[in-house]
Amino acid sequence: MLGKPSRWFAPLAATAALLLAASPAGATVTRPPNPPDFVVPADLACGFDLGVSGTGGKITRIDFKNGNFFQVGKGVILTYTNLSNGKTYRVNTAGTVARFTQNPDGKTWTFSAAGHFGFIFFPTDAPGAGAFQYTGQLKLTIDSPSTVNVLSVDSSGGKAVDICARLR
Rank of each mutant, 00 (worst) to 15 (best):
R7A: 02
R7P: 00
W8E: 03
F9Y: 08
A10C: 10
A10V: 05
A10N: 09
P11F: 09
L12V: 10
L12W: 12
A13L: 10
A14S: 14
L20C: 13
A22Y: 06
A22P: 03
A22T: 13
A22G: 15
S23R: 15
A25C: 07
A25I: 00
A25E: 08
G26C: 01
V29Y: 03
T30H: 11
T30S: 12
T30M: 07
R31I: 02
P32Q: 06
P32E: 02
P33Q: 08
N34D: 14
P36W: 01
P36K: 04
P36L: 01
P36S: 04
D37S: 12
D37Q: 09
A42E: 10
A42R: 13
L44E: 12
C46I: 10
G47L: 11
F48R: 12
F48H: 10
D49C: 03
G54Y: 08
G56F: 10
G57M: 12
D63C: 00
D63Q: 11
F64C: 00
G67H: 00
N68M: 00
F69K: 06
F70M: 02
Q71M: 10
K74M: 04
G75V: 14
G75F: 09
G75P: 08
I77S: 15
I77W: 05
L78W: 06
T79Y: 00
Y80D: 14
N82M: 01
L83Y: 07
Y89A: 14
Y89R: 06
R90Q: 15
V91C: 11
V91Q: 15
N92F: 11
T93Y: 10
A94F: 08
G95C: 06
T96M: 07
A98K: 07
A98I: 08
F100A: 05
F100V: 00
T101I: 09
N103W: 00
P104S: 06
G106W: 06
K107E: 11
T108D: 06
W109M: 09
S112Q: 07
A113D: 05
G118L: 15
I120M: 10
P123T: 05
A126H: 12
P127Y: 14
A129T: 01
A129W: 10
G130I: 08
Y134W: 14
Y134R: 01
T135Y: 03
T135R: 12
T135L: 13
G136N: 06
G136K: 02
G136L: 01
G136A: 03
Q137R: 13
K139L: 09
